[in-house]
């Protein structure tokens, strides 16, 4: 099956302004912040790709580049057969019909001065020729689908609880029946007790409506539940990518191993590998040459200074590490 979304070599760098960086540039040093540096992945119809990594590793920038909320510096994003990075004007607005996003903070993402109906209806108003009564019916339907019901249409954001707000955000994202939805940490601002219900809702919507998700999170447990495949990001690049089960059973990249070993296990008797990295994440202004993890990795070897591409270590299991498969 051809992928629904295909991302190749996506990069985004932010130039630094001011006198200091200008002098550095004259001395031939790199002074841009490379937030995303050559990211590639694809997502099949109906599939959920999990994107995990620490805060600041570029996950959200990837999401914003896909939707063109941020202009990528280079690379290609194809949805079906449309090159998203080249769209502009009304064609870009039509793209929003097929590609949507659910934001992290459900409160900040809702306009305090618009009713739920106005907000959920807006995509229909902008992208369809439906009349007022048809739009009304669609909004009522989608509110039911996200577990709220038509009664909520007249409310304003401040009259809703956190979970209800996130349901409204989800309703707004799926009202035009998009094929692809980016979920940017949709549960991290919610109480733990609400998370599982939102996750179950997202999973049910995916099945019923044939959606594909890019699920961004730093919550390993929810990724494990929701994602079919997982990509691990570190410092702007994907370092490992595999089927979810394979990745959790057999993490190959040292960064992935460190990430997984940091997840608490709710069992006092559980024993497992402790794998810790040294130091802090380096600044994305000066990313180490070769392997990005080189300075922090307990296994680092001289060869790690060489550039390291993603290679297929096992069928469907891609990893960017020189040491994998060499004992």
């Amino acid at each position: 099956m051809p992928p629904l979304l295909k991302v190749e070599g996506l990069s985004k760098s932010f130039p630094m302004r001011g006198l200091g960086p200008m002098l550095d540039r004259m001395r031939g040093r790199r002074t841009d912040v490379r937030a995303v540096d050559g990211v590639s992945f694809d997502i099949a119809p109906g599939e959920t790709l999990g994107l995990v990594g620490e805060s600041g590793c570029g996950k959200s920038t990837v999401a914003r580049c896909l939707l063109r909320l941020v202009e990528p510096t280079s690379g290609s994003v194809r949805l079906d057969d449309t090159e998203v990075t080249r769209l502009n004007g009304s064609a870009l607005q039509r793209l929003r019909h097929g590609m949507q996003m659910v934001f992290q903070d459900p409160t900040a993402a809702l306009n305090p001065r618009l009713s739920v109906r106005r907000m959920v209806e807006e995509p229909l108003r902008l992208h369809t020729t439906l009349g007022p009564s048809e739009r009304r019916a669609r909004v009522d339907d989608v509110l039911v689908a996200v577990g709220l019901g038509p009664d909520f249409a007249a409310r304003y954001a401040h009259e809703l609880s956190g979970g209800q707000k996130q349901r409204v955000n989800i309703a707004r994202a799926i009202v035009t029946d998009p094929r692809f939805v980016v979920l940017d940490e949709p549960t991290s601002a919610l109480d733990v007790s609400l998370r599982s219900r939102i996750i179950l809702l997202l999973e049910a919507l995916r099945e019923n409506r044939g959606l594909s998700y890019l699920f961004i999170s730093h919550d390993i447990a929810t990724v494990k539940y929701l994602a079919h495949r997982v990509a691990v990001m570190y410092l702007g690049a994907i370092v490992e990518q595999a089927e979810t089960r394979e990745l959790f059973a057999n993490p190959l990249h040292p960064y992935t191993r460190a990430l997984l070993s940091a997840v608490p296990i709710p069992d006092p008797d559980a024993r497992r590998e402790r794998f810790a990295l040294a130091g802090e994440v380096p600044s994305p202004v000066d990313i180490p040459a070769g392997c990005r993890l080189r300075g922090r990795c307990p296994l680092a070897q001289p060869i790690c200074a060489q550039p390291v591409p993603l290679r297929e270590a096992a069928p469907g299991h891609w990893v960017a590490c020189h040491l994998v498969g060499k004992g």
Binding site: F103, A109, N111
Partner: peptide
Amino acid sequence: EYAEAARTVG
């Protein structure tokens, strides 16, 4: 974020 959300919606 609601400004970004408005842009996302088209």
